[in-house]
Measured scan of single mutants.
Amino acid sequence: MTEYKLVVVGAGGVGKSALTIQLIQNHFVDEYDPTIEDSYRKQVVIDGETCLLDILDTAGQEEYSAMRDQYMRTGEGFLCVFAINNTKSFEDIHHYREQIKRVKDSEDVPMVLVGNKCDLPSRTVDTKQAQDLARSYGIPFIETSAKTRQGVDDAFYTLVREIRKHKEKMSKDGKKKKKKSKTKCVIM
């Protein structure tokens, strides 16, 4: 069974824990209790493949930012979460993405942009803004509501699919490099 290491990042209060708990335990946590770091595991079937999701729910508070490099190193894919009623959390996505790329030393890291709290009427981040940002990053965008469960499975499952595509691409690139290195030079 394939294991996928997913990391949920975003500013404090955007609903990272609520999304994760909704996926794992099928219930909505409405009281806000700032996370330092929590880890969850769940076995699911995605596109006919049974897999184990190892999900790291991270601290959004700035005082825990020193811990970010460590979990970013171990993560295979990242859910970059903002709240649709919090423009600052949307603007912060850029910083999370840049930090992930720096730590992973790669421009090509599996990510999904997630606009959470889409059940709320007080939207300050337009869907088109988020779609445009995701398009500019070359990553999928999904709106979710941890409260109603809308888009929750889709967000995590899409990230797994992005990781699969990335692994497939990397193995193809690896095979191309191996083929090239088999060419021999004969000096007579």
Rank of each mutant, 00 (worst) to 15 (best):
V125E: 11
I84T: 14
K101D: 10
R41T: 00
E98G: 03
P34M: 14
Q25H: 04
L79N: 03
Y40G: 00
Y157H: 09
V160H: 03
V114T: 01
K128S: 07
A146V: 14
K177C: 08
G115D: 03
G10M: 14
T144Q: 13
A66Q: 13
T158N: 05
F78R: 00
A83P: 15
A134N: 02
K177R: 05
R97N: 06
E37Y: 11
E3N: 12
K165L: 12
Y71R: 09
G115R: 02
V112Y: 09
E63K: 02
I24W: 00
I163R: 01
S39H: 03
T50P: 12
G115M: 10
K184G: 10
A66P: 08
D132S: 05
A130R: 06
Q129H: 07
K42H: 03
K169Y: 15
Y64L: 04
S145R: 07
K16R: 15
T87S: 09
L120E: 14
Q131F: 07
K128T: 07
E76P: 10
F141S: 10
D153G: 09
T148G: 12
D47A: 04
K16C: 15
K176F: 06
K88C: 12
R161S: 14
D30T: 09
G12Y: 02
I55K: 00
Q131A: 07
K128Y: 05
M67W: 03
I100S: 04
Q22Y: 02
A11Y: 08
Y96N: 00
Q129N: 04
L23V: 11
K167G: 06
M72Y: 13
E31M: 09
K169S: 13
P110R: 03
S17T: 01
Y4E: 03
D153C: 08
H166P: 06
Y137C: 07
F90N: 14
H94W: 06
D132M: 05
Y137G: 06
E37W: 01
C118Q: 06
E37M: 15
S106V: 10
I84F: 13
D38H: 00
G60R: 15
L56P: 00
Q150V: 08
T158V: 10
V14K: 15
V29T: 04
K178N: 06
V160P: 07
K165N: 10
Q43M: 12
F156Y: 11
V8T: 01
I139W: 04
A59T: 13
S145T: 13
N85S: 04
M111W: 07
L53H: 07
D57S: 00
I93T: 12
Q70K: 04
H94S: 15
E76L: 15
S136T: 06
G151Y: 08
C118I: 10
G13C: 04
Q22E: 08
D119S: 15
G15P: 02
N86I: 02
A66L: 12
E162G: 08
V160E: 11
F156T: 13
D132W: 06
G15N: 01
Y71D: 11
E31T: 11
F78C: 04
I24P: 00
K175R: 08
I139L: 14
A146L: 14
T124M: 10
V45P: 09
I93D: 03
R123A: 12
A66H: 11
Y96F: 15
H95N: 14
D119I: 10
Q43A: 09
V7F: 00
V152M: 11
T50V: 11
L79S: 00
L19I: 08
D119H: 14
G138A: 05
D154G: 07
L53E: 03
K182T: 07
G115A: 09
T20D: 09
F90K: 15
E168Y: 14
T158W: 12
I46C: 06
V109W: 10
H166L: 08
A66G: 07
D57T: 00
K5E: 03
G60E: 15
R161Q: 13
V45Y: 03
I93F: 13
C51P: 06
Y4V: 14
R123N: 13
S65F: 03
Q25G: 06
K184S: 07
E76Y: 14
R161H: 10
T127Y: 09
Q70A: 13
S181C: 10
T50Q: 14
Q99D: 12
A18L: 00
V7R: 00
E37P: 01
C80G: 02
V8F: 02
V125M: 09
G10R: 00
Y96T: 04
K104C: 14
K104D: 10
V9K: 01
V152G: 07
T20K: 00
D173F: 13
V114F: 15
S39F: 03
R41F: 00
F78A: 04
T20F: 00
F90W: 06
K177F: 09
V7D: 01
G75S: 15
C118F: 08
T50M: 09
K16W: 02
C118D: 10
F82Y: 11
G174I: 10
V14E: 14
E162H: 08
T20R: 00
M170C: 06
V112P: 03
T74A: 10
R161V: 04
Q61W: 03
A130K: 06
H94G: 10
E168L: 06
T158F: 12
E107H: 07
L79D: 01
I55R: 00
G10A: 15
S171C: 11
A83G: 14
K104V: 08
Q61F: 05
L53V: 11
G48K: 05
Q70N: 09
A11N: 05
G115F: 14
K167V: 07
Y157I: 11
C118S: 12
I46P: 14
E31F: 04
D153L: 09
A83T: 13
P34R: 14
K5L: 01
M170V: 13
K172S: 12
G174D: 10
Y32P: 07
Y4F: 07
Q43P: 07
K175I: 13
P121A: 13
V160L: 09
A130T: 06
G115C: 10
H27E: 06
E76R: 14
L56N: 03
I100P: 01
Q99S: 05
E98D: 07
C51Y: 12
Y71T: 14
S89V: 03
I55M: 13
C118K: 06
L53I: 09
V112F: 05
K165D: 11
R41N: 00
D153T: 08
K167Q: 09
L52A: 03
A66K: 05
F90D: 13
K88W: 12
T127N: 09
S122Y: 08
D108Q: 07
R123L: 08
T74F: 04
T58Y: 04
E76S: 15
Y71W: 07
Q25F: 03
Q99Y: 15
A155K: 05
Y32H: 03
G48D: 07
D173C: 12
R68K: 05
R135H: 09
Q129A: 12
I24Y: 00
S39G: 04
